[in-house]
C-alpha cells in the first residue's frame, strides 16, 4: 500500500524532461523533492496527475516499464479524473482562475465525487477478511450532508485563516498569490486524499502563512496521507518535517536521504549534482 513510481520517463513536446524516476511514498510519510529550476519538478507533478500535455515514454520496451501505482492499482494510462478519484491530489504551483465557479461549490462537488469512489472501492473489497473490514470501517466515512459539509468547510477554512467570504468567491479570481496557495491547502484538507503532491506551495508565502500551510501538511500526514512536497527551498521543511529528501536535477533523482540532505542544499546549493549530471 503505497504510491509507487517506477522508471517514469516523461516528454513534453518531444523533449525528454524526466528520466526514469522511481519513488515510493508510503501512507503517512512526507517526501520532499528539491531541485533547481528546470529540473523537472513540476513535470513530475503534472505527469502524476495525467496532464495530457505530457507523455509518459517507454524507451526500453518491456524491461523497465514505466508505471505509476496507487495502492497496487496501475494508473499510468488513466485520465486525470480517475486518478483523483483513486485518491491522488495535486496542489498547483500557479492555480488557474475560473470565473463564476465558486470555491465552496467546487469543493462540494469534488468531495462528493471522492466519497462516491471510495465507498465503491471499499465495498468491492468486501471479501478481503476481517482485518480489511476493520480498516474499511475506519476509513469508510459516508459522505456528509450538505449542512455538515458546510460546517466542516468553514471550520477547516478558519484553521487556515481563510476568511469565510472567500469560499463564495470565484475560484482564484482576484486572489493574492498567498491566498491561492491557502485555498489549495484547504482543498487538500477537505478532500483528504490518499496521496497529495504540493507543487511549490511555499512560493510567495510569508512566514505566518507558511506555518499555517505546514500545519495543514502535518494534519494530512496524521490522517495517513502520503505527501510529496516539491520545493526550491528548505524553508517550509522546517515546519513540515520530511521523512525523506530527494534531489531532482536534470530530470533524474540524483540523491536521496533524510532531512540532512535538505540542510546540505541550503548550504551548498545544487551545484554539486549539476556538475555530475
Amino acid at each position: 500500500m503505497s504510491l509507487i513510481i517506477k522508471n517514469l520517463s516523461v516528454n513534453l513536446r518531444e523533449r525528454q524532461i524526466l528520466k526514469e524516476i522511481s519513488l515510493e511514498v508510503a501512507p503517512g510519510t512526507l517526501h520532499a523533492i528539491m531541485g533547481p529550476n528546470g529540473g523537472g519538478k513540476s513535470t513530475l507533478s503534472a505527469a502524476l496527475l495525467g496532464n495530457s500535455a505530457y507523455t509518459v515514454t517507454d524507451r526500453v520496451r518491456g524491461k523497465n516499464k514505466p508505471q505509476i501505482l496507487v495502492d497496487n492499482k496501475d494508473i499510468t494510462g488513466l485520465p486525470t479524473d480517475m486518478r483523483a478519484k483513486l485518491g491522488l491530489f495535486l496542489a498547483f504551483q500557479s492555480p488557474i482562475s475560473i470565473p463564476g465557479v465558486n470555491v465552496a461549490n467546487l469543493l462540494k462537488t469534488a468531495y462528493q465525487l471522492s466519497k462516491e469512489q471510495r465507498t465503491k472501492n471499499h465495498s468491492s473489497r468486501h471479501k478481503e477478511g476481517l482485518r480489511a473490514r476493520k480498516d474499511q470501517k475506519k476509513l469508510h466515512n459516508p459522505a456528509l450532508s450538505v449542512w455538515e459539509f458546510n460546517e466542516m468547510l468553514v471550520k477547516e477554512a478558519k484553521k487556515l485563516s481563510i476568511p469565510q467570504d472567500f469560499l463564495r468567491r470565484s475560484l482564484n479570481e482576484a486572489f493574492s498569490g498567498g491566498e491561492k496557495k491557502k485555498l489549495e491547502m484547504l482543498q487538500a484538507v477537505i478532500l483528504s486524499p490518499k496521496y497529495a503532491v504540493f507543487d511549490e506551495i511555499d512560493t510567495g508565502l510569508d512566514v505566518d502563512a507558511l506555518k499555517i500551510v505546514a500545519t495543514g501538511i502535518e494534519q494530512l500526514k496524521k490522517k495517513k496521507t502520503g505527501v510529496i512536497v516539491i520545493t526550491h527551498y528548505q524553508r517550509i521543511l522546517k515546519y513540515a518535517r520530511p521523512d525523506f529528501v530527494h534531489i531532482l536535477v536534470g530530470g533524474r533523482i540524483v540523491a536521496s536521504g533524510n532531512r540532512n540532505l535538505a540542510k546540505e542544499v541550503e548550504e551548498n546549493g545544487y551545484r554539486k549534482w549539476a556538475d555530475n549530471n
Binding site: A53, D81, A84, L90, I98, T109, L191
Partner: peptide, 18 residues
Amino acid sequence: GDEQLFYLMSRGLKKADA
C-alpha cells in the same frame, strides 16, 4: 483552456462535468 480542464479534472470531475 486545457489548464482549466486539468485543474477541475484533478479534483475528480469528468471532462464533460468540468
